[in-house]
Amino acid sequence: MPEWIIVSLRTLLAVVVLFFMTKLLGKRQVSELSLFEYITGITIGSIAASICLDLNTSWYLGVLSLVIWSGITIGIEYLQLKSKKARDFIDHRGTVLIQNGKILEDNLKKIRITSDELLTRLRQKNMFKVADVEFAIMEPNGDINVFPTKENQPLTPKDLGIQIPHETVPQTVIMDGKILDHSLNNLGLNRRWLHTELDKAGVTVENVFLGQVDDMGELYLDLFDDTIQVPKPKTRQLLLATLQKALADVKGFALDTNDPKAKKMYRACQEKLEQVIAKVKPRLQ
């Protein structure tokens, strides 16, 4: 058999074996949490390469080696799942670099990081001032994670004491011009509703690249043809505007009328509408 055929066959074999190995190893391998997993990734790759090209060794030896490597890796992962002690022994633990705003020089020495390197890594996390860092840790995979002091953390609605309505994840209902019935059913909607909405926007399903529905039942559309402008859904803003207009009207009526009874009634209406607007405003913006 000519060599090129052997190489092709071996390559095909390596691809198939590698495919199933990576399926078995799963996602954890991709994240490369520890040095060991990093080395495993490289080794598996080079063994696969030698299956393909190294004609002096028999192909089954390479496959055997791959199976053993993957088996041991999976075994270790199970061991780590089961016992904390094994985890501490196998994985490196994170090293604290800054605590309570103070740099821990001993720990820097332990993992052999210079002060310049520390500063660079902090800058990568957008922390130019060491004084702004409350806590910094080097994770087992070598990344540095930084926890800024309270006053340097980004402002969130919680800090301002604002109540934010719960919003669920939007569902994708059209993909590549095809309707996804499953997600439509999840929202309690059907094809007829979708067709009505598409008619409102003036497009057909075939022209839609992507369609998403949020939890307020509004449809966002992206078309294949980027020159066409799709009207943005405005029901929410319209509703809020209607309510605010009605409030202004009622205020005006209360000022216009001379009948004390009617004045009182209009004032009551005004209060009610103000309550309604305060209630629904956070969901309509």
């Binding site: 309505p165 719960h166 669920t168 309690g188 939890d215 307020m216 039942g217 309510l243 009605a246 009622v250 009634m265 009551a268 209406c269 009610k272 509408l273 309550q275 309604v276 209630k279 629904v280 969901r283």
Partner: peptide, 26 residues
């Protein structure tokens, strides 16, 4: 009707009721 969260449903239901009351008075 559309909203799935029970709390949101309640809020909008109450709001609708109040708007209806205002309309009746008008």
């Amino acid at each position: 009707q559309i909203l799935e969260q029970e709390k949101d449903k309640q809020t909008f239901h109450e709001a609708a009721e109040q708007v209806e009351q205002v309309r009746n008075q008008l």
